[in-house]
Design a protein around this nucleic acid. Structure first.
Lengths: 275, 275
DNA sequence: GGAGCGCTGTATCGTATGTTACGTATTTTG
DNA sequence: CAAAATACGTAACATACGATACAGCGCTCC
C-alpha cells in the first residue's frame, strides 16, 4: 500500500534514468518543499533541465505538474491537521471506544488553539466586555446549548445579555433592538442552517458586530462576521464534536470576566450577596 | 516580535477592510495551505475577488504574491524540520491567558478519562441504548446546556428522549411518567442545586436509574445514582470548567450511536431521509 | 565498428497566472 | 446633506510558467 508520494518515489526510483533519479533524490532530500516551487527552481536545484522534471513527474503517474503539486499539498495538509498521525501511531490497541475519541478531541483542541492568537481572543473578549451595547447569543441545532452555556455565564457578570431561543420568527422580532454597538455571537457548524445565515445577514445589515463560532470549513456566516473562530470538529464518531468550540467559549468567558474584574468587581460582588 | 505570517495577520487584521479580513480569516482557518494555491483559488475560497487577495498580501508587506508564497513555504519548511517548534503561538510566557487555560483543560480531560473505564462507559451507553424505557435529561444552572446538547443528539437516534426544561414545578409533574425502566441523566456541579437534589431523590424513590455527571467532589445526588461520572473542573479562571464533562457526554453519544447502529440503523436512515 | 534506441537539453509555443487600470458602490467627513 | 475618500470588483494586460517538438549525444547490441 502506497500512501505518500515519498513512498511512490522510493518504489520507482530504481526504474528511472539517471537525470530523473537526480530529480527524485533532490526532492527526497528536502521533501516536499522543492516540489512546491516552480519547475524552473526544481530543475535548477536538481541540476537538470525543466523537461526532465516534467518527465519525472509524469513517470510518477501525474498528468501534469500542477496535479503533482496539489497532491503534495494535500499530503502536507493532512500532516499538519493531525499532529498525532505524524508519528505514525498505531490507533490504540484493543479498539476501545474511549481512547481514540479522547485523543482526537485533544488534538482538535490543540489544533484549534494553534490557529487562535492571544490577541484575537483578547480582542473578542474586549468587545464582549464593552458595555455600551447589548450581547445576543444564538446557535444552531446542536450548538445552541453552547450559546446557552455562554449566555448563562455572561449574563451574570454583565447586564444586557440575551440568548435567542425559540422559533425563527421570535429572533427576527429581536432584530429591531439590535444596532451598531451590539454584538451577536453565533454558533454554526455543519450542516449550516439557512435560518441562521439569513438572520446573520439581516443583523449584519443593521451594523451588528458578529462573532462567529464555526468549524474549520467556515459557515457562510463568516462573510458577515467581524470575528471568526474556527474549531476542529472531526472525531471518530458519527457526529461532529463541538468540544473544541466549547473550550474556546469557556476561555472567552474567563477572559471577559477578568477584564470586567479589572474594571471593577462591584457587580460581581453584588451578585454574590444576592444569592 | 513577529516571527510568522500568522502572527503578522493577527496583528494587523484589526486595521483591514472587510473583504481583506475575510481573506485573512480564510487563510488562518486552513493555515497555511490556501496561501500556497493560486490567487484565483484563494479568492474563490474567501469569496472575494483576486485583487482583494493581492491587496491583502500587499498590506502584509509583500511586494507580490510569489514573494508571499515563498515566505509561507519557508515557514512551513522550518516547521517540518523541527516538530518541536511547531507551536504556532509561542507558549506565551507570563501573562498569556490562553495557554494555561488550555493546558489545564487538557489535563482535566486526561485525568477524567483516567478514572473512567471503557467498561463503565460501555455499561452506561448500553443503558441509554436500551429502548424499553424513556430517557430524561436535566442539568443545573450552568450545566443544563450540556443536558440539552446530549438530548439534542440522543433524540435523533432514538425515541422517547426528553429534556426537562423550565421551572422546578414543571419537572416534578413529569415524575409521574417515570418508572423503573427509565433513565434520568443529571448534570450537577458545584454549587450543587437543592432543587436538583430533591428531584433526584424523588426520581430515585420511583426506581428511576440515575446517571450523574458531576465534579470531582461529587454532588450529593451521587447517593442515588446508579452511575457516577466525576469530571475535573479546576481551571485558572473565575469559573469552573465543564469541558471534561462535555467530552464525556460526546463520547457517550458516540458510543450509544454505535450500539444502535449495530442493532439496526433503520431509524437513523429514516431520519436522514426526512431532512 | 555501425545502426538503432533511449536519454537529455535547447528552443519555441500556448496559456494560466499574477498584475494593473478604471469605474462603481459604499462609507466617512465636514 | 453634499462631497471626498476609501473599498471593491470587472476587465484588459503582460509575463512567467508549464508543455512540447526536435536535435544532439551516448550507450547498447548486433
Amino acid at each position: 500500500m502506497i500512501s505518500s508520494i515519498a513512498e511512490l518515489i522510493a518504489d520507482r526510483i530504481g526504474t528511472m534514468p539517471a537525470s530523473e533519479r537526480r530529480a527524485a533524490q533532490t526532492l527526497i532530500a528536502s521533501y516536499p518543499m522543492i516540489g512546491l516551487k516552480t519547475v524552473a527552481e526544481f530543475s535548477a536545484a536538481a541540476g537538470v533541465s525543466s523537461p526532465t522534471i516534467l518527465r519525472f513527474v509524469a513517470r510518477l503517474g501525474f498528468q501534469n505538474y500542477p496535479e503533482f503539486q496539489s497532491s503534495l499539498q494535500d499530503e502536507l495538509a493532512a500532516q499538519l491537521q493531525s499532529p498525532a498521525t505524524r508519528t505514525l501511531n498505531p490507533p490504540s490497541p484493543g479498539g476501545g471506544t474511549v481512547s481514540p475519541m479522547l485523543e482526537a478531541t485533544l488534538d482538535n483542541m490543540r489544533e484549534t488553539f494553534r490557529h487562535l492568537s492571544d490577541k484575537q481572543l483578547a480582542d473578542i473578549a474586549a468587545r464582549l466586555a464593552d458595555r455600551r451595547g447589548k450581547t445576543f447569543l444564538i446557535g444552531g441545532r446542536f450548538t445552541d446549548p453552547l450559546a446557552r452555556y455562554m449566555a448563562a455565564h455572561l449574563a451574570i457578570i454583565q447586564p444586557d445579555v440575551f440568548h435567542l431561543a425559540g422559533q425563527e420568527s421570535m429572533w427576527r422580532d429581536r432584530l429591531i433592538d439590535m444596532g451598531k454597538r451590539d454584538v451577536l455571537v453565533i454558533f454554526d457548524i455543519r450542516r449550516y442552517q439557512d435560518s441562521l445565515v439569513r438572520f446573520a445577514e439581516k443583523a449584519h445589515q443593521r451594523g451588528v458586530q458578529i462573532v462567529l463560532f464555526t468549524d474549520q470549513w467556515l459557515s457562510p456566516i463568516a462573510r458577515f462576521a467581524r470575528h471568526v473562530i474556527a474549531g476542529r470538529t472531526a472525531v471518530p464518531s458519527a457526529w461532529d464534536s463541538s468540544a473544541a468550540l466549547f473550550v474556546v467559549a469557556e476561555t472567552l468567558i474567563g477572559a471577559v470576566t477578568r477584564q470586567l474584574e479589572a474594571k471593577g468587581a462591584k457587580r460581581i460582588r453584588e451578585m454574590e450577596s444576592l444569592r
